[in-house]
Design a protein around this nucleic acid. Structure first.
Lengths: 249, 249
DNA sequence: ATATAAGGTTGATCTATATCAATCAAAGGA
DNA sequence: TCCTTTGATTGATATAGATCAACCTTATAT
């Protein structure tokens, strides 16, 4: 299958936000039925993207945020040196584009990692609606605040933690996000490549590979290619904290 | 002077937001006169903190965001391992607390690095006002979006850049922020200690010290203690980009 | 079915920066 | 004023992870 197809086709079926399987993790979470209807009026549902297609591109005029409905999205920025830096992975129910509201252009590129469908939230309409629905405004402040926190968390991971800790953290983060989505928290497919992981976590691909095989030989996980099973979540959690492992006196 | 004084005294003089020297970088920036007056009604001006005093503490109930009016504030989180991680430095005109809106508690501790005065923005009142002043809401979305971007920028710095690049970036960031504040961009006092810098940038104190002396011996800066002069900004900018310095073939 | 490319793994070596240790300097408190 | 503490600098050594290189494995294209 080609992976250069960047056009988005409207989905044949239109599902209301109320009946969406994500309604308990997406925006409706915070709204009453009446307000959900008003939200629905501005949401553009059902755009789909093949693997590798761009949901939006860095520098393009900022118009909308996007909720991932199914699939997965990777965001990245191109630095001055022309290198790609992966800034995030987004799973169903998560919002992409919150970092692009302060300019008129997207500050990153969002690419579908697999066949992905999204709901589009035109920003100016969203803003307008938020002034009329205080809980929607409140919810957006919370979402954005959480996004700041997530990003700080990543900085922390990058500045203080070892390769093993970073990778264990990522696996556990994905696990809990899949769980929230009512998918198996212990058996899933990574939507991203090893080099995306390496780039995101500030490591070399080789290191990612080595750590994953090490985890495997320690019986913490089972991995073949992108298929991952977490065999010992407690032990993985221990790894993320093992930070300053005191030598036994 | 004691530095354990944590009580805040109201300032004797009450300056209106309109007449504040920061009005062109603070919230009034985005508002017309009438709206500024409404903002003023909810802003608690003139709290001051001695060096080392806490503006707010991690886990305390979240009530307000704070604009630094003078001085400087450091934010940090205590990790599960009990270690401190510095998450940001805030200079006059910058807002602290945007990362704490998604829970009911502050997600970090904010400490005055020197004698500091702030304006308090009670969040619930601010939210209420934002629904009535769309430009205020818009401005907050922008501020928060920018904060996400800043934090991503830091992640990028931490994951891809060398010690020299990180330190050069910090110096240039401070420089441009002082400049915006109409202070000298080339001659300033660092509000934070070497170990705060090291912690923030994910380095050892010794490394920070060494890089600063190296920059000095290369004639890029002059540093004694916290007093910094940037002698060759262009060269510093070059350092931040020198990332993949190709060996000359 | 075979060729080609892209992604992933494993091994050997090198290096930036952490860590350990000592010294120095400035700031507060007695 | 001197002592104590805290912060900063400098030097020597150790190490996690990058880099270089080879090889394997899975997908896509011909």
């Amino acid at each position: 299958m080609g992976q250069r197809i960047t056009t988005a086709q409207p989905s044949p079926v239109k599902i209301t936000c109320n009946h969406c399987s994500l309604s308990n993790l997406c925006l409706p979470l915070a709204l009453d039925d009446n307000d959900v209807n008003r939200l629905e009026d501005i949401v553009q549902q059902g755009q789909t993207f093949n693997r590798g297609a761009l949901v939006f591109e860095q520098q393009a005029p900022f118009k909308s945020c996007f909720v991932v409905r199914s699939g997965a999205v990777k965001t990245s920025v191109i630095t001055e040196n022309g290198e790609e830096q992966v800034t995030g992975f987004f799973l169903p129910g998560e919002i992409v584009g919150l970092d692009s509201m302060s300019d008129d252009i997207y500050s990153c590129t969002a690419k579908a990692l697999e066949y992905t469908s999204v709901c589009e939230l035109p920003f100016s309409q969203l803003e307008h609606l938020a002034t009329h629905i205080p809980t929607l405004q409140h919810h957006f402040f919370q979402l954005m605040s959480q996004e700041i926190k997530n990003s700080q968390q990543l900085s922390l991971l990058l500045s203080k933690n070892s390769a093993e800790e970073r990778i264990a953290s990522l696996l556990l983060s994905l696990s809990s996000r899949f769980k929230r989505r009512r998918l198996s928290p212990t058996h899933f497919n990574l939507p991203m490549s090893r080099s995306d992981i390496a780039n995101y976590l500030g490591l070399a691909v080789e290191t990612v590979s080595r750590v994953i095989t090490r985890f495997q030989s320690q019986g913490l996980i089972k991995a073949q290619g992108r298929e991952i099973q977490l065999l010992d979540i407690e032990a993985l959690q221990a790894v993320t904290r093992e930070f300053s492992k005191c030598r036994p006196t």
